[in-house]
């Protein structure tokens, strides 16, 4: 990310984290990104407790058949403009669970995805980079309005 683009930040990003069947590996790295070593909140990014307050939907884990309708519902509840990040290999491709009878598919077969953060689990730095990428994308969307 260039310096110029950093100047254009207009608001802080609020993220709603949803787990659709992850093993917790990505989830604890997301919490690690919030805590003092990485401290994502100093960039104005924070996790919120409801999708209606969020700008970004962050999803971990392959989508289970039982979670398919729930993730769609949560996606619809996030107000526009919105963006979706998928953290971890399983959400991006199905990962090690690709053969399972209860997996509905990788996330992008169910809702549109903007940023993929690969890794099993990705490091907190990678997660922060992913959120920053999505920030740029949201700004672009704002600009086109």
């Amino acid at each position: 990310m260039t310096k110029e683009s950093l100047k254009t930040f207009k608001k802080s990003l609020w993220v709603f984290h949803m787990n659709t069947g992850s093993c917790n590996g990505c989830d604890i790295e997301i919490v690690a990104a919030l805590t003092p070593r990485y401290d994502i909140e100093r960039f104005g990014m924070m996790l919120v407790g409801t999708p209606r307050h969020a700008d970004v939907l962050l999803v971990t884990g392959p989508v289970m058949k039982n979670m398919e309708d729930k993730v769609k519902r949560v996606y619809e509840q996030v107000p526009d403009p919105k963006a979706v990040i998928v953290v971890g290999n399983c959400g991006a491709t199905g990962g090690v669970f690709h053969e399972s009878y209860s997996v509905a598919g990788p996330l992008d077969k169910i809702i549109p995805v903007d940023v993929y953060v690969p890794g099993c689990p990705p490091r907190p730095e990678a997660i922060i980079y992913g959120v920053a990428k999505v920030w740029l994308k949201l700004e672009e969307m704002e600009g086109k309005k």
């Binding site: 058949k65 039982n66 491709t93 690709h98 399972s100 009878y101 209860s102 509905a104 598919g105 077969k109």
Partner: peptide, 26 residues
């Protein structure tokens, strides 16, 4: 619960196994 139908028993090796529920993702 939910989307796994009754009458499918995942640990069974016979015709009642879960093979038919697997979606081909690729």
């Amino acid at each position: 619960i939910g989307n796994i139908p009754e009458g499918v028993y995942p640990w069974r090796k016979d015709e009642k196994g879960p093979q038919k529920l697997v979606r081909d993702m690729y």
